[in-house]
């Protein structure tokens, strides 16, 4: 995590803490046991900084405002009324509990007749993304320049990621395991949501939910197999497997393309440019290594190279030159 991130979190905790302190003081004031000593302590607390004062003003003003509540509920017989008010939510709770639906997990009948060896082919063009639903009801989101084939019969479901990147949400079906083949690797799905990306010389598998097993279809391969759990992101090349524990929340950034954004966190301009260049004919070119090494963070629309370039120029103080369709960035 970057310093900036850590700092942001610390500050956020701070504002919430101050609000709790303010609520604590306000509660004491109205609680009915306030004394002179409290007065002095409260003054000290208030004087600490305007943060305290502002937080307290906000809570106490809202609390006073709620005096109007008395207009909402005339209380000729306070005790009765209050008891009634207290009971109502409890009652509704019971009713809700009673009505809780019984969850039926329907195991879909195997309505799928043998589809035969012929696989369905799905593809996206350069810069495009697409959501598809496979014949087994699994959902797949295809990123730019992706080709996926899929076939299923009564005993198994098989997909081939011939190129590109896809995010899978697998329909649950214990009777038919779901397997994805990429190059010479086999990804067996033990769970439900995961990403597979195939690059020239490496394979990336990241798991959001459930478990996924990756093993070489080729027995001579160096590694046997790895089982990935949610939050893990594995990079598999011919020679190595490295698993990073990113955490599910951070995987969200990796999967930003699904929402149409690229998320950078302390990412070098070289990496960021490479990511943009996957989607756009207008390429970002880094003219010198110094600029390429600068890092940047933030969330950008995937299809707005201009915005990224402009913001980068302004924030990092770089020089940008248009060359044909390309944007050339230099120091």
């Amino acid at each position: 995590m970057t310093d900036a991130c850590a700092k942001g979190l610390a500050e956020a905790a701070n504002a919430a803490d101050i609000e709790v302190e303010a609520a604590d003081w306000l509660e004491r004031k109205i609680g009915g046991s306030w004394n002179e000593r409290d007065d002095a302590l409260f003054e000290q607390w208030l004087a600490r900084s305007p943060d305290q004062r502002v937080a307290f003003l906000r809570l106490s003003a809202a609390w006073s405002y709620a005096d109007r509540l008395s207009a909402l509920r005339p209380v000729p017989q306070p005790r009765m009324s209050a008891a009634g008010l207290g009971r109502r939510p409890l009652l509704s709770k019971i009713v809700i509990a009673a009505m809780l639906p019984i969850v039926l997990i329907g195991i879909a009948a195997s309505y799928l007749a043998l589809t035969g060896p012929r696989a369905q082919v799905y593809a996206t063009a350069f810069g495009n993304r697409k959501k598809i639903v496979l014949s087994d009801k699994s959902q797949v989101e295809l990123n730019t320049q992706t080709v996926l084939r899929f076939t299923a019969d009564r005993t198994r479901r098989v997909a081939w990621l011939d190129r590109g990147e896809a995010f899978f949400q697998i329909a649950h079906d214990v009777k038919r395991p779901f397997v994805v083949y990429i190059d010479n690797q086999r990804v067996t799905v033990l769970g439900t949501k995961f990403l597979v990306r195939s690059d020239a010389d490496r394979l990336e598998v990241a798991v959001v939910e459930g478990r996924v097993k990756v093993d070489p279809a080729d027995d001579a391969a160096l590694h046997k197999f790895v089982v990935l759990i949610p939050g893990e992101d594995a990079i598999i090349s011919a020679k190595s497997v490295s698993v990073a524990r990113k955490g599910v929340k951070n995987l969200d950034d990796t999967l930003g393309w699904r929402r149409g954004v690229l998320v950078f966190d302390n990412t070098t301009l070289a990496d960021a440019a490479a990511q943009f260049n996957r989607y756009s004919r207008k390429k970002i070119v880094l003219a010198d290594t110094e600029a390429a090494r600068l890092t940047i963070g933030g969330t950008f629309p995937i299809d707005n190279v201009e915005l990224f370039v402009r913001v980068t120029r302004d924030v990092l103080g770089l020089h940008v030159e248009k060359r044909g369709d390309d944007e050339v960035i230099s120091r």
């Binding site: 509660e27 009915g32 207009a71 909402l72 209050a82 939510p89």
Partner: peptide, 29 residues
């Protein structure tokens, strides 16, 4: 008023009861 009503509805039941007793009936803690 409407917002206050919304706030009340949103509070967990016991919390709501305490707020009402404090605000409307003016009871001490």
């Amino acid at each position: 008023l409407r917002k206050l009503q919304i706030v009340l509805d949103r509070l967990p039941p016991r919390c709501r009861e305490a707020v009402i007793l404090s605000k409307i009936e003016g009871l001490t803690r």
